[in-house]
Structures are given as structure tokens and as C-alpha cells.
Design a protein around this nucleic acid. Structure first.
Lengths: 257, 257
DNA sequence: AAATAACTCTTTACACCGCACAACGTTATG
DNA sequence: CATAACGTTGTGCGGTGTAAAGAGTTATTT
């Protein structure tokens, strides 16, 4: 493996799978199972136990085929990952009906919050290197909705893309800290409180003289961690970003007028 | 493996390793190698070939010990990862000398750009789930420097933490797209151009009616990807954020006055 | 000085992984 | 009815993390 990056194989093959464009084979036995079942099973495993629990053998077993039969349906594990990504992008393909009446701030906030929820539901997505975009139907549709949040508010096309990219990047950057909690407790069987209690005696032996600001700003040890609520961090960052966007729009409007 | 999360073992043991507080053993032969050599070797491998190339066997081999001897020095691979993270945080422990003369925007930008460079140098860091903070000396020191960029500009302690967290999150969110490029080319042996040329014929067969905005805003297929320069995306997001911060500071100053 | 405890290092082994390869069975086409 | 194209399966290879047990080395205790 070269770490989960599709594309070593034929990238067109992947697109065909994403868009259901498999030229229907005319000979040979009917497949026991459909591609979608494989992808769904893989997503279920990832949601429940993390991406590292998704092995080709395990997925094959879940849908009732032999380990190697997996490779009849999917070229390699890398392609499975891309198929999984497009698969879970299916919800959120449609903008809410009251979309047009909302102002851009509300729309961007809605998109960002939806995305936040999305990553919390599928935290394993964050473990992938973002790579060449998964050009599947669901992914494209979700991007279309996101773009719609900044349509017609005074940005040119490039700025629209930059704004939406910034939105996504801010969500991804902040939600990682939120996804952590559940994952870590599951993996270590230790709550944050318990972890904290365990290390506290050691932390008291550290000389904090070299860290004057840190030791003032938060209980040093738990600075990043204990300061806390990742969603609050997200809201802080996103509010500043939106304020900055507003300033930009005002400047642009002023220049034009 | 439960995906690379330290803590299943004794978290205090990890702290002892991070701070070099191993109670020196008085019996038995002297260790053939030092912990630092192991960690350095692991970082070298990760920098060169990605985190997935870092196996306990490989690291042991690199420092000249048998595979299992690794476990005499490090409780498990998870702890190795945390040690690696603190190890690479060593540079950037010190703020530049002209630090005090700079205004807060320049300081935050400097910190953010340094962080950007850091992640490009060690892109494998982005593949980890952020989890409980690595409370090592280097990590703490780096955090101290980052906090220093917003010291004394009118924020309270909590806001300082939020501002620095936002800075880090924006960098992480955007730099992922930059780290992608090198990694993907290495893994697939295919340049972005070549990849694009390969899939273009297929993309022309897609009906873009459902994606009116996307197909206008960019060449649809390459929307996120082709829109491009990740560092430009970072600058866009970060500039908006800084503008928003400035507004916040003005509001606070106004309220006080 | 001898015994022992504590330590490092090594070998062996296990259960897992992705997947190449070859064999076999099934189906539609010539 | 032969054949080509396909789905499925079993075997096997080289890799993984690490448990367990043993061998060798050193400082402490007796």
C-alpha cells in the first residue's frame, strides 16, 4: 500500500465506478452482490469502528463473499476509499427550501454547520490525505450546494471558490478536535477526566518558567485540550472569517458605487 | 492496532519519555542505542516516505537493533508517534528577535506561515487524528511562541487561546491541500497534468445540468482541485480572519473607551 | 565470592493485512 | 456445442504489531 491514495490504477475506471458506468458484461455469471453493498458495508464498518477496521477481508465477509472476490468489484482498496467518500456525500445534496430567503451569512453558517455534523458522523474521513478530488455525483452535488451559499452576493467566480474553500477548510481544521473525543475514548477506554487525573501528578513536577504565557492563559498542561469546546473554537474562527468576508463585500460595493 | 492513539498504555510513562525522566536503571547492560536515535530514525523515514513506511521493524533496523528490541525503548508504536510529534516541534521554539517591534498582524502571519512550512516539511503529521495533546517540552514551547503573537493586544486569556487555536486550525485546514500534491505524485507516479489528461475524455460525457454554478465557477471537474493554489486559499482565509480579528479588537477598544 | 534480581536484547510465533496468481464454475455468444 | 468472457474461490507471499519466552549482562544483596 502507498497509503490509501487511489490513482495508481486507472483513474478512469474509478470514475466509471463512481458514475455507475460499468459497461454491463454480457457473459459470465451474475455477480452475487452489487458494488453499492460493498461500499455501504465498508462505510458502516468505518463509522462504527474507524477506517482502520475496514479491511478487504472484513468487507468481503460482511457482504458474504470470499476475500478475493472483493477485487472483482473494486480494483483495490484505494478505489474503495474514494467510493466510500462519494457514497457518504449523498445527503446534503439538496439545499433547504428556504435557502433563497436567507442572507449569505445564514447560508454559509448553515453549510458550515451541516459540514461539521457530517464530519462528526464520519470522522474517519479526516484521516485521509485530501488528494485529487473525488469527482463523483454526490461530491459534485454537495459542492454545488456549498457554492450556492455565496451565489449572487457580489463575489466574482474565483472569489466564490475561495470563499467556499475557506469555509470548508475552517470546518475541517476545527472539527478534527471534536472528532478526537469519541475516537480517543473508544480507543483507550479512558475518559478525558480519567486521563487528566492520571497525568496530573507528573505535570506538577514540571518547571513552567519557560512557559509564562501558556501557564497563565490556561492550566498549562491542558491548554489546547482543556481550553476546550471545539465547537466554540469553530464558532470563534468562523465568526471572524464571516466578519472579514463582510468587510470585503463592503469594500467591493463601495469601490463599485 | 487501534489507529495510532497513545494512551492505551500508561500515559505517565509517555510523559516520562517525553521529558527524559526515565528513572535510570541501575542493573543490566547499557542500552545499545538511545531513545532519541529511534525517534529521529522514525521521523527521517516518515519525512522521506510517509508515515505508513514507519514500521517498528523498519525503525529497529535503521538504528541497528532487532525488531523486538524496539519495545525495550518504546512501549508501543502509538507512543513512538507522540514522541515523533514532540521531536519535530523542536524548531520554532524561539520567537524571532524583532518580535516585539512587529504588530500583531505581522506576528500572527509569521507564526501561521512558519506553521505552514512545518506541515509541508512533515505532511505525515496531518494524517493523525488530533487527540489528547502531546504534552512534551517542544510542543509546549511552540505553543508558547504562538500565544506570544497575541499577547498584550487587548484580548483576554480565553480569547487569546481561541485566536491561536483558530490560527492553527486555519493553517491545518488549508495546508492539507498543499501537502497533497507531493504525496499524491509520489504515490501514484502520475503528475496532476497527466491525471487530468487521462480523465478528461470521461468528464466530457457527464451531464452538468445539475451543477450549474459549479460548471460556471470553474472547469467543473477540477473545481476544488484546479482552482488551485492552496497557499492562495490559505491567504484568502487568513486575511478574512485577520480582518475579523481587527474588527473584534476595535469593538473591544471602543466599548472600553 | 556467590546468588540473585533487574535489566537489554533476541528468537520464535501468532493473527492479521493487501493482493498476485491460478484454478474452477457459470453464462452468453459464435 | 465449443469457446470466450466473466465471477468466485483457495493458496500463497511478504508485510504488519506485538506477546511470550529465553539468553546474556550487570549491579546489588547475601
Amino acid at each position: 500500500m502507498g497509503q490509501d491514495i487511489a490513482g495508481r490504477g486507472d483513474p478512469v475506471k474509478l470514475l466509471e465506478l463512481l458514475w455507475g458506468r460499468d459497461k454491463a458484461p454480457r457473459r459470465g455469471p451474475k455477480p452475487k452482490i452489487a458494488l453499492e453493498q460493498i461500499v455501504q458495508a465498508a462505510v458502516d464498518i468505518a463509522d462504527a469502528e474507524g477506517i482502520e477496521a475496514v479491511s478487504t477481508r472484513r468487507v468481503a465477509d460482511a457482504v458474504g463473499i470470499s476475500p478475493m472476490s472483493f477485487y472483482t468489484h473494486v480494483p483495490s482498496k484505494a478505489e474503495l476509499h474514494d467510493l466510500m467518500l462519494d457514497h457518504i456525500a449523498a445527503p446534503g445534496k439538496e439545499a433547504p427550501p428556504d435557502w433563497p430567503q436567507m442572507d449569505w451569512r445564514a447560508r454559509m453558517t448553515l453549510v458550515a454547520e451541516a459540514m461539521w455534523g457530517f464530519y462528526l458522523q464520519h470522522p474517519w474521513v479526516l484521516q485521509f490525505q485530501t488528494h485529487r478530488p473525488v469527482l463523483g455525483p454526490n461530491t459534485l452535488a454537495a459542492y454545488e450546494v456549498a457554492l450556492g451559499s455565496v451565489e449572487g452576493i457580489g463575489l466574482d467566480d474565483l472569489e466564490m471558490d475561495l470563499a467556499v474553500t475557506a469555509l470548508m477548510d475552517i470546518v475541517v481544521g476545527t472539527v478534527r478536535n471534536a472528532a478526537r473525543e469519541k475516537t480517543v475514548r473508544d480507543a483507550t477506554g479512558m475518559s478525558d477526566d480519567e486521563w487528566w487525573r492520571r497525568i496530573e501528578p507528573f505535570l506538577e513536577t514540571i518547571d513552567y518558567a519557560p512557559y509564562p504565557i501558556s501557564s497563565r492563559v490556561g492550566p498549562v498542561a491542558g491548554a489546547e485540550y482543556g481550553a476546550g469546546d471545539p465547537h466554540r473554537a469553530f464558532k470563534f474562527a468562523f465568526e471572524r472569517f464571516l466578519d472579514g468576508m463582510e468587510l470585503m463585500l463592503e469594500r467591493k460595493a463601495g469601490r463599485k458605487a
